[in-house]
Nucleic acid binder design. Sequence first.
RNA 1: GGUCCCAUCGUCUAGCGGCCUAGGACGUCGGCCUCUCACGCCGAAAACACGGGUUCGAGUCCCGUUGGGAUCACCA
Length: 472
Amino acid sequence: MEKVRVRFAPSPTGFLHIGGARTALFNWLYARHNNGVFILRIEDTDRSRSTDEYIDAIIQGMKWLGLDWDEGPFRQTSRFDLYRSYADRLLKEGMAYYCYCSPAELEARRKEAMAAGRALKYDGRCRDLREPVPGVSPVVRFRMPQEGRTIVEDLIRGRVTFANDQLDDLIILRSDGTPTYNLTVVADDIDMGITHVIRGDDHLNNTPKQIQLYNAFGYPVPEFAHLPMILGPDRARLSKRHGATSVMAYYEMGYLPDALVNYLVRLGWSYGDREIFTREELIRYFSFENVGRAAAVFNPEKLLWLNSRYIINSPSERLAELVIPFLARENIVTEGWNPDREWLARAVDTLKERSKTLVELARSLRCYIAAEIEYDEKARAKFLNEESLGLLTEVREGLATLDVFSEAEIERLFRSIIEKHGIKLGRLAQPVRVALTGGTQSPGIFEVICVLGREKTLQRLQKAIKTAGENA
RNA sequence: GGUCCCAUCGUCUAGCGGCCUAGGACGUCGGCCUCUCACGCCGAAAACACGGGUUCGAGUCCCGUUGGGAUCACCA
């Protein structure tokens, strides 16, 4: 069988967004599953809206997601000669013609058609024009067959039939000679030997037109697979007004790329009851058979849950590395901070099961790293007072003289103190927690003490004892 | 408006005629665990849009209705 060749073809008129990322992902998965080739092609023929910054942003997004491509990136703006030759062929063979209608005329006729309830379609009045209209630079239109039907055999949708008389004589060359979308896609897909066109559902209506172009050029059509759209909570197509749609925004918010990939793939694809997959599993199991047909609502809560799962399952050493930029961004450390990695990993280890994002992880790391901690006012009032003063002092003295500063030894010390006073562990742990972290929520108190180390612990206890004294 | 697509819990989905008393996951609510918060564990509420067929039998097949979405550019 012919080697699978697929492409992701974004237009650089914005950042890589969630919808585009999923299209890229499905292409990538299909390529990898079939040991095929994944091509990145930048569709930048609309030069007024395309920018190099967006191209960079798209590439950055792809890289962050780990969607590596085998060929490209190709830019359509550097392939105009190719499109020109395809258009010329059509012109020469009478399958395309010059159209002299002005944009204003076209617009007027469209309005008219809309009012009359007809299809908004070019009426073909320049089809059989013999002589050029002087002083007008024409566009080139494709002579679309008007008889019969065009059938799209879609790997996801099944058979979709279009009546040819619904199809427009589409413009393939603008009046300035530049090619338009439908021409460039077909020319490129032919030229690049694309075997499977995997793209958003919004292109389904373009497909019969493109099939006619393939026919005109005398090339067999590729396989098509139209993916369902991703919707916002209001069931409208996901867009900026729904909040974060740029892939890199999820980096900023502390998401792991694998979590986003996992979430995106499950939006519209399933594999029995399974929710969490490694990349290798995704590649192994991926198939269009399991891709759904209905549009899916993007659910940030489930993504957040998945991210927390990925954080819990990531090695702490790895998380320690990943969280450093976030510590800097949160102003918890300064740029260029170079911690003891082993210590950081231990600190992360105590926090990762209570952090849903790297941002949360960074923030909760603050109490281990900061030189000074601030007390939460309510926590201070409730736990650093006359009642805890003695206990805090006892803990401090005990810790100061502990032979081995280990979790086991620290716990032994705590147990002996509560036994002596006949109190529950909470009565002792909470004041110490506030003393060491400033708040009432933290990892296990013995872990905290251990990670903090003897020096910092004693320092903070000292300060808390002073505060408790003043509060008494 | 024309054309095309879609339709199972709030959300993502399993289901490809009998295994469905409709399963899983997120979220929600209760409980357990417990030094706090989490994690984990147990449990609960929660869906086949509607109406016709076909069939011994329909969430599953067909038709219609309704409702959503996409598209109809010298954008891609």
